[in-house]
């Protein structure tokens, strides 16, 4: 139960940037976005949680929404990324590799204390895990 709860929190933390990344490609309507996220295995706890998340992103000014009347179909609300959303996404892209590498190091007991190994390479390049600057 605790593991499930932790995974839910983890999903919750990364779902926002993933939504922004999908919207960066093109605007999407709700079900379309849900299906794309669901295709990434394990990312969605439930389909419905996407909508409160979208509303929070909208409230933060990272996405906008508008109604579009698709030809031959009923009107749908499409979500688009804003400039602020792109900036946030870029910042996340910069931070994520180092963050995930750091977490990986800790989980695998591969962290080296600087005092024990003077002169070692910075965290983002040691162990061969590339940071933003090494990509």
């Amino acid at each position: 139960m605790a593991a499930e709860s932790g995974l839910t929190e983890l999903r919750r933390g990364v779902l926002g940037p993933c939504v922004l990344a999908l919207l960066e490609v093109r605007p999407r309507f709700g079900l379309e976005l849900v299906r794309d996220l669901a295709a990434a295995d394990g990312l969605l706890t439930s389909d419905g949680t996407v909508y409160p998340l979208l509303n929070r992103l909208r409230d933060a000014g990272l996405v906008t929404s508008e109604w579009r009347d698709d030809q031959g179909e009923r009107a749908r609300r499409y979500y688009s990324i804003t400039n602020a959303g792109r900036e946030t996404l870029e910042a996340f892209r910069t931070d994520w590799p180092r963050f995930s590498a750091t977490v990986g190091n800790v989980l695998n007991h591969e962290m080296t204390h600087p005092a024990e190994a003077p002169g070692i390479a910075p965290l983002d390049t040691q162990n061969g895990i590339a940071g933003q600057g090494a990509q």
Partner: peptide
């Protein structure tokens, strides 16, 4: 939003 989701699905 949920109603639109269900109507689409």
């Amino acid at each position: 939003q949920l109603a639109a989701h269900l109507a689409d699905e």
